[in-house]
């Protein structure tokens, strides 16, 4: 398994990424030189105290925000060279967002919410809705299709949000505290869903406060003060392989760079 991962391509690569907020005395770096390489198929959990820059990092990864300094390569292309509308297309096609506060549009039904990302791919309404319906079925929510978001429980709402993130078949899922507003039972269900998605080969990057959730991840990164503090593979079953993988990761990265 470690070998497979070693060969899988690099999806995300950050080099010395900094994000500065404020001006003058109020100036501070939310991110202060982050170096990170994430490969296809990884399930990365990012941990850390409030204000350490987790969400900022996730926003930059998801192209919602731009780094002040440093380079971010997505699928081998530096995002600084990509135009705003191309970035929007990338968000539409390769990135799926899951938010802590779900962020469904309240005046649209569950089905329409799930179909929303397909709109920006220019898909016909009927096709959109049928695709959304199919994906809701895999989350056992097909009976709730015509509910409004406020008629759902927190766990259901987040499952709808995950379904929405997946409907475009993105290669990267970015989840910002997906279980932050849920009780432990609902959290468990959500994590099982994410775990399933991961097993199907998707890359997942999840920000969380809850150390127990990291058991689902294949790699855990802890951040502090805008930098990466520790970066380990915490997968319980593959402790040793994980360390190996981490070591060889640097090598492959260099090789990959040489190859380019």
């Amino acid at each position: 398994m470690a070998k497979n991962r070693k060969k899988s391509p690099i999806v995300i690569k950050l080099k010395g990424v900094k994000k500065r907020y404020g001006v003058g005395d109020a100036e501070h770096n939310a991110l202060d030189g982050v170096n990170l390489t994430i490969r296809k198929g990884e399930f990365v959990a990012i941990m850390g105290p409030s204000g350490c820059g987790k969400t900022t990092l996730l926003n930059i990864l998801g192209l919602l925000d731009q780094a002040t300094e440093g380079e971010y390569q997505l699928d081998g292309t530096s995002v600084a060279t990509i135009s705003a509308s191309r970035q929007a297309r990338i968000r539409s096609k390769t990135i799926g967002f899951v938010f802590q506060s779900f962020n469904l549009i309240p005046r649209l039904t569950v089905l329409e919410n799930v179909a929303l990302p397909l709109t920006y791919k220019g898909m016909r309404r009927n096709k959109r809705l049928s695709l959304a319906s199919t994906i809701l079925k895999t989350f056992h929510l097909n009976e709730r299709e015509y509910y409004m978001p406020w008629q759902l429980s927190g766990g259901q709402t987040q499952r709808v949000a995950i379904a929405r993130a997946l409907v475009n078949d993105p290669s990267i899922i970015l989840a910002d505290e997906p279980t932050g507003n849920l009780d432990s039972r609902a959290s468990h269900i959500i994590m099982e869903e994410l775990s399933d998605i991961h097993k199907r080969g998707n890359t997942i990057i999840m920000v969380t406060h809850n150390p127990r959730l990291t058991t689902y991840a294949s790699r855990v990164i802890t951040m502090i003060d805008g930098t990466i503090d520790t970066d380990t593979n915490d997968t319980p079953a593959a402790d040793q392989e994980g360390t190996l993988a981490k070591r060889s990761l640097g090598k492959v990265t260099k090789e990959a760079e040489a190859a380019q």
Binding site: R89, N103, L104, I105, P117, Y120
Partner: peptide, 9 residues
């Protein structure tokens, strides 16, 4: 939300 889901300017 729409922007995050891929809406352009």
């Amino acid at each position: 939300i729409r922007k995050a889901l891929g809406a352009t300017h």
